[in-house]
């Protein structure tokens, strides 16, 4: 299990990545996280919602209410241009972080 402390700094990058190509709604993102991490990490609902909220108030996401084909009305989230910039910054930060930590892994 991944400790929530370790991954906390990277919830933003995970969510922004998954919204890169198209808007998505809460559970859809949650399931993609579990699938893409091959079940190694499941983001708790409160963590996910808290991240959506924070990213939206920072202007990285925009939310709108939308309807799936033949389905329910849901809140969708979409990446803003600032969001894309933020993703690039977080990505660069991670590359450096990874390089540093890797120096101490045998």
């Amino acid at each position: 299990m991944i400790s929530s402390d370790v991954i906390r700094g990277y919830t933003d990058i995970i969510i922004l990545y998954l919204l890169m190509d198209e808007p998505g709604y809460g559970y859809e993102i949650s399931r993609k996280i579990t699938d893409r991490s091959q079940g190694l990490y499941t983001m708790k609902e409160t963590t996910l919602y808290s991240a959506f909220n924070r990213l939206e108030s920072n202007g990285y996401l925009r939310s709108f209410s939308g309807t799936e084909t033949g389905g329910k009305t849901r809140t969708y989230y979409e990446l803003t241009p600032q969001g894309r910039i933020h993703y690039q910054l977080k990505k660069d930060e991670w590359i450096v972080t990874k390089k540093v930590v890797d120096q101490f892994i045998k």
Binding site: Y25, G26, Y27, S30, R31, E45, L48, Y49, F52, R74
Partner: peptide
């Protein structure tokens, strides 16, 4: 709003 959103996610996960 938080309660609705969380409820929506939980319902979706349950159905899945």
């Amino acid at each position: 709003r938080a309660k609705n959103e969380l409820g929506q996610m939980m319902e979706d996960k349950y159905n899945q």
